[in-house]
């Protein structure tokens, strides 16, 4: 028996094995390296890119994709996909704005927006687990329905004049330092850390904790890794999937609030194709569309790669059309590298 079950040659014993970079860690490392190379490249190409102000702009821009990407990661790890996040983002933002217009306090209205997102996620989850509709189709349906509802409710017109309080989440910043100059104009000493970036950091840490340290996280991985095995082991796979879709919907709702707050306008046509950015962020970060693999930290790196690509290409004056081509190629490249790695 010993010769049959002898540890594979070249494999370090347990204490060392945890230090050895496994495949997922290598992927994340290479993604991180790509991110740093991008930053270095753009910094050389443009003076304005490598500045505190621009860094904060990138943070702000990435926060929406990051929030969507975290929810998407949970769903992708279970072996599913959520195509509805862009539309749910719009519906939630519109819902919040309508509540604000109706006189509901901003905080409560935003909670309502998140709840609308969670409800959309719950419908996704129930259609996937109860009606056994494949996630691609179920969430494609929700993508159309949520967008349609957002457009119908608003008559396709943006809701504006939402007041200063509505804009605070998207435009406010912590530790912002402004000094009044003798000439009467304010001078910004430090622009502060934008609230959306802080929100993203909190959500990312929370989601990572959930995946690593809580039972539901373990079950999310198990469900995506081998659904039948998870079920036979007593994992309630339907509840686990439902949880992932609800989280994805709620985070889309939160992202919707952030985005609409930043614009201080609720746009029912906002967030089109955002689901693809979210999927790209997760995949670049090492999540596997066949399930069982993915991390929040990886997705964060993926989200920043996309955010920095967009920002840097903008700064370099590259057209939006070329940007699409570049990001599309990056997604394919990331998956290709991943597959090459797994094949060997």
């Amino acid at each position: 028996m010993s010769q049959a079950i002898k540890p594979a040659s070249g494999r370090a014993p347990t204490p060392l094995a945890s230090l050895m970079p496994d495949a997922a860690k290598i992927h994340r490392l290479s993604a991180l390296l790509t991110l740093l190379l991008l930053i270095a490249g753009f910094a050389l190409a443009s003076q304005a890119f490598f500045s505190v102000n621009n860094a904060l702009t990138v943070l702000l821009q990435t926060s929406v994709i990051g929030l969507l990407g975290i929810g998407m990661t949970l769903v992708i790890i279970t072996g599913g996909i959520d195509l509805s996040v862009g539309s749910v983002l719009a519906l939630s933002g519109v819902g919040t704005a309508m509540a604000v217009k109706a006189g509901v306090p901003v905080g409560l209205a935003m909670a309502l927006g998140v709840a609308i997102g969670a409800a959309c996620g719950a419908v996704n989850g129930l259609v996937v687990t109860r009606a056994k509709i494949p996630p691609f189709v179920a969430t494609l349906g929700m993508m159309l329905m949520a967008r349609g509802l957002a457009l119908q409710l608003t008559g396709a017109a943006p809701i504006s004049q939402l007041g200063e309080a509505f804009g605070r989440l998207g435009n406010g910043a912590l530790f912002r330092m402004v000094e009044m100059q003798p000439n009467g104009f304010p001078k910004v000493i430090f622009p502060g850390i934008p609230y959306p970036a802080i929100l993203l950091a909190v959500v990312a840490v929370g989601a990572a904790y959930l995946l690593r340290r809580r039972q539901i996280g373990r079950h999310i991985y198990a469900t995506g890794s081998n659904e039948e095995a998870a079920r036979l082991s007593g994992v309630r796979v339907d509840q686990t999937k439902l949880y992932a879709y609800v989280m994805s919907g709620a985070l889309a709702g939160l992202a919707g609030n952030v985005l609409m707050s930043r614009l201080v306008t609720a746009q029912p046509s906002e967030g089109v194709m955002y689901e693809l950015d979210a999927i790209a962020a997760a995949v670049i970060g090492g999540a596997s569309l066949s399930g069982g693999v993915g991390t929040v930290s990886g997705t964060m790196i993926g989200a920043f790669i996309i955010g920095i690509l967009r920002n840097g290409l903008n700064m370099a004056g590259v057209s939006a059309f070329i940007q699409q081509i570049v990001i599309g190629a990056v997604v394919i490249g990331a998956v290709w590298i991943d597959q090459m790695r797994n094949r060997r």
């Binding site: 373990r218 991985y221 890794s225 081998n226 039948e228 095995a229 998870a230 069982g292 693999v293």
Partner: peptide
């Protein structure tokens, strides 16, 4: 189980 019912990634 004959299939062992293991989650491969864990």
């Amino acid at each position: 189980y004959q299939t062992l019912a293991l989650a491969d990634h864990l």
